[in-house]
Protein backbone atom coordinates (compact mmCIF):
# COMPACT_ATOMS: atom_id res chain seq x y z
CA UNK A 1 0.00 0.00 0.00
CA UNK A 2 1.34 3.41 -0.90
CA UNK A 3 1.01 6.23 1.56
CA UNK A 4 -1.04 8.13 -0.90
CA UNK A 5 -3.87 5.76 -1.49
CA UNK A 6 -7.17 7.56 -1.02
CA UNK A 7 -9.07 6.73 2.11
CA UNK A 8 -12.19 4.72 1.70
CA UNK A 9 -15.36 6.67 2.31
CA UNK A 10 -18.04 4.90 4.31
CA UNK A 11 -20.03 4.31 1.16
CA UNK A 12 -17.18 2.76 -0.80
CA UNK A 13 -16.26 0.49 2.07
CA UNK A 14 -19.51 -1.35 1.68
CA UNK A 15 -19.30 -1.07 -2.09
CA UNK A 16 -15.98 -2.83 -2.18
CA UNK A 17 -17.41 -5.78 -0.33
CA UNK A 18 -20.17 -6.22 -2.85
CA UNK A 19 -18.39 -5.36 -6.07
CA UNK A 20 -15.13 -3.92 -7.41
CA UNK A 21 -15.05 -0.14 -7.76
CA UNK A 22 -14.97 0.03 -11.51
CA UNK A 23 -18.24 -1.84 -11.78
CA UNK A 24 -19.99 0.54 -9.44
CA UNK A 25 -18.76 3.61 -11.20
CA UNK A 26 -20.16 2.84 -14.63
CA UNK A 27 -23.91 2.75 -13.98
CA UNK A 28 -23.54 5.85 -11.85
CA UNK A 29 -22.14 7.80 -14.75
CA UNK A 30 -24.95 6.87 -17.08
CA UNK A 31 -27.49 7.60 -14.39
CA UNK A 32 -26.07 11.08 -14.13
CA UNK A 33 -26.24 11.34 -17.91
CA UNK A 34 -29.86 10.25 -17.89
CA UNK A 35 -30.67 12.78 -15.25
CA UNK A 36 -28.96 15.53 -17.21
CA UNK A 37 -30.92 14.56 -20.30
CA UNK A 38 -34.22 14.54 -18.45
CA UNK A 39 -33.53 17.90 -16.88
CA UNK A 40 -32.95 19.54 -20.24
CA UNK A 41 -36.48 18.91 -21.50
CA UNK A 42 -38.90 21.78 -21.91
CA UNK A 43 -41.25 20.35 -19.31
CA UNK A 44 -38.56 20.20 -16.69
CA UNK A 45 -37.72 23.83 -17.36
CA UNK A 46 -41.37 24.75 -17.03
CA UNK A 47 -41.70 22.91 -13.73
CA UNK A 48 -38.51 24.54 -12.49
CA UNK A 49 -39.85 27.99 -13.32
CA UNK A 50 -43.17 27.26 -11.58
CA UNK A 51 -41.37 26.07 -8.45
CA UNK A 52 -39.11 29.11 -8.53
CA UNK A 53 -42.11 31.46 -8.75
CA UNK A 54 -43.98 29.68 -5.96
CA UNK A 55 -40.86 29.75 -3.83
CA UNK A 56 -40.21 33.44 -4.36
CA UNK A 57 -43.76 34.73 -3.96
CA UNK A 58 -43.76 34.88 -0.15
CA UNK A 59 -40.48 36.79 -0.19
CA UNK A 60 -41.89 39.26 -2.68
CA UNK A 61 -44.95 39.61 -0.45
CA UNK A 62 -42.71 40.31 2.50
CA UNK A 63 -40.79 42.90 0.49
CA UNK A 64 -44.00 44.66 -0.56
CA UNK A 65 -45.32 44.50 3.00
CA UNK A 66 -42.19 46.14 4.31
CA UNK A 67 -43.11 49.26 2.34
CA UNK A 68 -46.70 49.47 3.60
CA UNK A 69 -48.04 51.27 6.62
CA UNK A 70 -49.31 49.40 9.67
CA UNK A 71 -52.95 50.18 8.93
CA UNK A 72 -52.67 49.03 5.31
CA UNK A 73 -51.02 45.76 6.33
CA UNK A 74 -53.85 45.11 8.74
CA UNK A 75 -56.59 45.99 6.29
CA UNK A 76 -55.62 44.14 3.14
CA UNK A 77 -53.20 41.63 1.63
CA UNK A 78 -49.95 42.83 0.08
CA UNK A 79 -51.18 42.13 -3.47
CA UNK A 80 -53.68 44.98 -3.02
CA UNK A 81 -50.80 47.41 -2.55
CA UNK A 82 -50.28 47.86 -6.28
CA UNK A 83 -53.76 49.35 -6.68
CA UNK A 84 -52.60 52.37 -4.74
CA UNK A 85 -48.85 52.83 -5.29
CA UNK A 86 -48.93 56.23 -3.60
CA UNK A 87 -49.40 54.53 -0.25
CA UNK A 88 -45.90 53.04 -0.24
CA UNK A 89 -43.81 54.40 2.58
CA UNK A 90 -40.27 54.13 3.91
CA UNK A 91 -41.48 54.65 7.47
CA UNK A 92 -40.95 51.05 8.52
CA UNK A 93 -37.31 51.21 7.41
CA UNK A 94 -36.83 54.55 9.09
CA UNK A 95 -38.24 53.25 12.35
CA UNK A 96 -36.31 49.98 12.15
CA UNK A 97 -33.03 51.81 11.59
CA UNK A 98 -33.72 54.30 14.34
CA UNK A 99 -31.27 53.76 17.17
CA UNK A 100 -32.77 51.84 20.03
CA UNK A 101 -32.47 53.16 23.53
CA UNK A 102 -28.77 52.53 23.62
CA UNK A 103 -27.36 51.58 20.22
CA UNK A 104 -27.85 52.13 16.52
CA UNK A 105 -28.12 49.49 13.83
CA UNK A 106 -24.50 50.15 12.86
CA UNK A 107 -23.31 48.76 16.16
CA UNK A 108 -25.25 45.55 15.60
CA UNK A 109 -23.89 45.19 12.05
CA UNK A 110 -20.34 45.55 13.32
CA UNK A 111 -21.01 42.99 16.04
CA UNK A 112 -22.36 40.53 13.50
CA UNK A 113 -19.29 40.95 11.31
CA UNK A 114 -17.00 40.51 14.30
CA UNK A 115 -18.83 37.29 15.13
CA UNK A 116 -19.13 35.98 11.59
CA UNK A 117 -15.64 36.37 10.13
CA UNK A 118 -13.73 34.23 12.66
CA UNK A 119 -16.67 31.83 12.96
CA UNK A 120 -16.36 31.15 9.23
CA UNK A 121 -12.58 31.12 8.88
CA UNK A 122 -11.83 28.94 11.93
CA UNK A 123 -13.89 25.88 10.91
CA UNK A 124 -12.67 26.14 7.31
CA UNK A 125 -9.07 26.06 8.42
CA UNK A 126 -9.49 23.25 10.95
CA UNK A 127 -11.76 21.19 8.72
CA UNK A 128 -9.48 21.34 5.71
CA UNK A 129 -6.57 20.15 7.85
CA UNK A 130 -8.71 17.32 9.22
CA UNK A 131 -10.02 16.50 5.77
CA UNK A 132 -6.47 16.23 4.47
CA UNK A 133 -5.60 13.77 7.18
CA UNK A 134 -8.71 11.71 6.57
CA UNK A 135 -8.21 11.71 2.82
CA UNK A 136 -4.50 11.29 2.31
CA UNK A 137 -2.81 10.15 5.51
CA UNK A 138 -3.42 6.52 6.38
CA UNK A 139 -3.47 5.82 10.10
CA UNK A 140 -5.15 3.08 12.11
CA UNK A 141 -8.83 3.64 12.80
CA UNK A 142 -9.12 6.30 10.15
CA UNK A 143 -12.43 5.10 8.73
CA UNK A 144 -14.02 4.60 12.11
CA UNK A 145 -12.92 8.04 13.17
CA UNK A 146 -14.24 9.60 9.99
CA UNK A 147 -17.62 7.95 10.40
CA UNK A 148 -17.66 9.13 14.00
CA UNK A 149 -16.94 12.73 12.96
CA UNK A 150 -19.66 12.62 10.38
CA UNK A 151 -22.08 10.97 12.78
CA UNK A 152 -21.70 13.98 15.08
CA UNK A 153 -23.61 15.85 12.41
CA UNK A 154 -26.75 14.10 13.68
CA UNK A 155 -26.39 15.39 17.24
CA UNK A 156 -28.57 18.49 17.61
CA UNK A 157 -26.55 21.46 18.83
CA UNK A 158 -29.25 22.39 21.35
CA UNK A 159 -28.30 19.57 23.68
CA UNK A 160 -24.77 20.91 23.91
CA UNK A 161 -25.73 24.45 24.90
CA UNK A 162 -25.85 24.16 28.68
CA UNK A 163 -22.78 21.92 29.11
CA UNK A 164 -20.77 24.15 26.78
CA UNK A 165 -21.84 27.29 28.62
CA UNK A 166 -20.87 25.60 31.86
CA UNK A 167 -17.42 24.76 30.50
CA UNK A 168 -16.85 28.28 29.16
CA UNK A 169 -17.92 29.99 32.37
CA UNK A 170 -16.71 27.68 35.08
CA UNK A 171 -13.75 25.81 33.56
CA UNK A 172 -12.28 28.20 31.02
CA UNK A 173 -13.44 31.41 32.64
CA UNK A 174 -14.29 33.51 29.60
CA UNK A 175 -18.07 33.32 30.06
CA UNK A 176 -20.01 35.56 27.76
CA UNK A 177 -17.42 36.72 25.28
CA UNK A 178 -16.77 36.53 21.57
CA UNK A 179 -14.51 33.55 22.21
CA UNK A 180 -17.48 31.49 23.37
CA UNK A 181 -19.43 32.22 20.18
CA UNK A 182 -16.49 31.67 17.84
CA UNK A 183 -15.55 28.38 19.43
CA UNK A 184 -19.16 27.19 19.59
CA UNK A 185 -19.85 27.98 15.96
CA UNK A 186 -16.61 26.21 15.03
CA UNK A 187 -17.56 23.14 17.01
CA UNK A 188 -21.03 22.97 15.47
CA UNK A 189 -19.71 23.46 11.94
CA UNK A 190 -16.78 21.05 11.93
CA UNK A 191 -18.57 17.74 11.08
CA UNK A 192 -20.22 19.03 7.92
CA UNK A 193 -17.16 21.05 6.93
CA UNK A 194 -14.86 18.06 7.33
CA UNK A 195 -17.20 15.83 5.36
CA UNK A 196 -17.67 18.28 2.48
CA UNK A 197 -14.01 19.18 2.11
CA UNK A 198 -12.90 15.58 2.56
CA UNK A 199 -15.14 14.38 -0.25
CA UNK A 200 -13.88 17.09 -2.53
CA UNK A 201 -10.27 16.44 -1.62
CA UNK A 202 -10.52 12.73 -2.30
CA UNK A 203 -11.52 13.42 -5.89
CA UNK A 204 -8.20 15.10 -6.60
CA UNK A 205 -5.78 12.86 -8.49
CA UNK A 206 -3.29 11.08 -6.24
CA UNK A 207 -0.56 11.54 -8.86
CA UNK A 208 -0.39 15.22 -7.95
CA UNK A 209 0.64 14.49 -4.43
CA UNK A 210 2.86 11.63 -5.45
CA UNK A 211 4.73 13.96 -7.76
CA UNK A 212 5.10 16.50 -4.97
CA UNK A 213 6.36 13.77 -2.70
CA UNK A 214 8.99 12.80 -5.22
CA UNK A 215 10.11 16.43 -5.34
CA UNK A 216 10.62 16.26 -1.59
CA UNK A 217 7.49 17.99 -0.29
CA UNK A 218 6.21 17.04 3.15
CA UNK A 219 2.58 17.00 4.30
CA UNK A 220 2.65 20.66 5.23
CA UNK A 221 3.99 21.81 1.87
CA UNK A 222 1.58 19.57 -0.01
CA UNK A 223 -1.34 20.89 1.96
CA UNK A 224 -0.57 24.59 1.67
CA UNK A 225 1.09 24.74 -1.76
CA UNK A 226 -0.90 22.19 -3.72
CA UNK A 227 -4.17 21.27 -2.08
CA UNK A 228 -5.37 24.52 -0.61
CA UNK A 229 -5.47 26.39 -3.95
CA UNK A 230 -7.29 23.46 -5.57
CA UNK A 231 -9.84 23.36 -2.80
CA UNK A 232 -11.19 26.83 -3.49
CA UNK A 233 -14.62 25.70 -4.80
CA UNK A 234 -15.26 23.44 -1.81
CA UNK A 235 -14.05 26.04 0.67
CA UNK A 236 -16.13 28.75 -0.96
CA UNK A 237 -19.20 26.51 -0.95
CA UNK A 238 -18.84 25.67 2.68
CA UNK A 239 -17.89 29.27 3.40
CA UNK A 240 -21.21 30.55 2.08
CA UNK A 241 -23.04 27.87 3.96
CA UNK A 242 -21.38 28.71 7.22
CA UNK A 243 -21.57 32.44 6.58
CA UNK A 244 -25.35 32.32 6.10
CA UNK A 245 -25.77 30.12 9.13
CA UNK A 246 -23.74 32.34 11.44
CA UNK A 247 -25.18 35.54 10.02
CA UNK A 248 -28.71 34.33 10.64
CA UNK A 249 -27.99 32.71 13.97
CA UNK A 250 -29.87 33.98 16.99
CA UNK A 251 -29.79 31.11 19.45
CA UNK A 252 -26.06 30.54 19.78
CA UNK A 253 -25.19 34.20 20.17
CA UNK A 254 -28.05 34.82 22.58
CA UNK A 255 -26.83 32.06 24.84
CA UNK A 256 -23.08 32.48 24.67
CA UNK A 257 -22.89 36.22 24.17
CA UNK A 258 -26.07 37.72 25.57
CA UNK A 259 -28.16 40.50 24.15
CA UNK A 260 -26.40 43.65 25.32
CA UNK A 261 -26.07 46.19 22.51
CA UNK A 262 -22.26 46.19 22.78
CA UNK A 263 -21.99 42.60 21.59
CA UNK A 264 -25.35 41.47 20.18
CA UNK A 265 -25.63 40.71 16.44
CA UNK A 266 -28.22 42.07 14.01
CA UNK A 267 -30.50 39.05 14.51
CA UNK A 268 -30.98 40.01 18.14
CA UNK A 269 -31.94 43.51 17.14
CA UNK A 270 -34.43 42.20 14.56
CA UNK A 271 -35.95 39.79 17.06
CA UNK A 272 -36.38 42.67 19.47
CA UNK A 273 -37.78 45.10 16.90
CA UNK A 274 -41.37 44.16 17.63
CA UNK A 275 -41.14 45.60 21.12
CA UNK A 276 -41.79 44.11 24.51
CA UNK A 277 -45.29 42.89 23.76
CA UNK A 278 -44.97 42.57 20.02
CA UNK A 279 -46.92 45.73 19.26
CA UNK A 280 -44.47 46.88 16.59
CA UNK A 281 -44.66 43.67 14.54
CA UNK A 282 -45.05 45.65 11.33
CA UNK A 283 -41.36 46.62 11.53
CA UNK A 284 -40.24 42.99 11.24
CA UNK A 285 -40.48 42.76 7.45
CA UNK A 286 -38.33 45.86 7.07
CA UNK A 287 -35.88 44.55 9.68
CA UNK A 288 -35.64 41.24 7.84
CA UNK A 289 -34.72 42.94 4.59
CA UNK A 290 -32.13 45.15 6.24
CA UNK A 291 -30.40 42.16 7.78
CA UNK A 292 -30.71 40.26 4.49
CA UNK A 293 -28.70 42.70 2.36
CA UNK A 294 -25.23 41.44 3.20
CA UNK A 295 -25.98 37.70 2.92
CA UNK A 296 -27.69 38.22 -0.44
CA UNK A 297 -24.63 40.03 -1.77
CA UNK A 298 -22.30 37.35 -0.47
CA UNK A 299 -24.44 34.63 -1.95
CA UNK A 300 -24.70 36.26 -5.36
CA UNK A 301 -20.96 36.85 -5.42
CA UNK A 302 -20.06 33.28 -4.51
CA UNK A 303 -22.98 31.28 -5.87
CA UNK A 304 -21.03 29.71 -8.74
CA UNK A 305 -18.79 28.06 -6.18
CA UNK A 306 -21.77 27.10 -4.10
CA UNK A 307 -23.31 24.94 -6.82
CA UNK A 308 -19.99 23.42 -7.81
CA UNK A 309 -19.04 22.71 -4.23
CA UNK A 310 -22.33 21.06 -3.38
CA UNK A 311 -21.99 18.75 -6.35
CA UNK A 312 -18.53 17.80 -5.15
CA UNK A 313 -19.97 15.48 -2.56
CA UNK A 314 -22.64 13.99 -4.77
CA UNK A 315 -21.98 13.26 -8.42
CA UNK A 316 -18.63 11.75 -9.16
CA UNK A 317 -16.63 11.97 -12.37
Amino acid sequence: MSTLQPAATPESVSDEVIAPRTKVKKPKKSAAGDAAGALNSRWASFVAVVIAVLWTTPTVGLLVTSFRSQIDINKSGWWNAFANPGAFTLDNYRQALEPGSSASFTQYFINTIVITVPAVLLPIFLASLAAYAFAWMPFPGRNVLFVAVFALQIVPLQIALIPLLDIYTNKLGFGASYWSVWISHTIFALPLATFLIHNFMRELPGELMEAARVDGAGHVTIFFKILLPLLTPAIAAFGIFQFLWVWNDLLVSLIFLGGTPEVAPVTVRVAELAGTRGSAWYLLSAGAFISMIVPVIVFLALQRFFVRGLLAGGLKG
Binding site: R94, L97, F105, T106, Q107, F109, I290, I293
Partner: peptide, 9 residues
Protein backbone atom coordinates in the same frame (compact mmCIF):
# COMPACT_ATOMS: atom_id res chain seq x y z
CA UNK B 1 -24.74 50.47 6.01
CA UNK B 2 -22.75 51.78 8.89
CA UNK B 3 -22.98 55.24 7.44
CA UNK B 4 -26.74 54.89 6.96
CA UNK B 5 -27.29 53.79 10.50
CA UNK B 6 -25.06 56.50 11.87
CA UNK B 7 -26.79 59.35 10.13
CA UNK B 8 -29.99 58.52 11.94
CA UNK B 9 -28.48 59.45 15.25
Amino acid sequence: LAACGGSDD
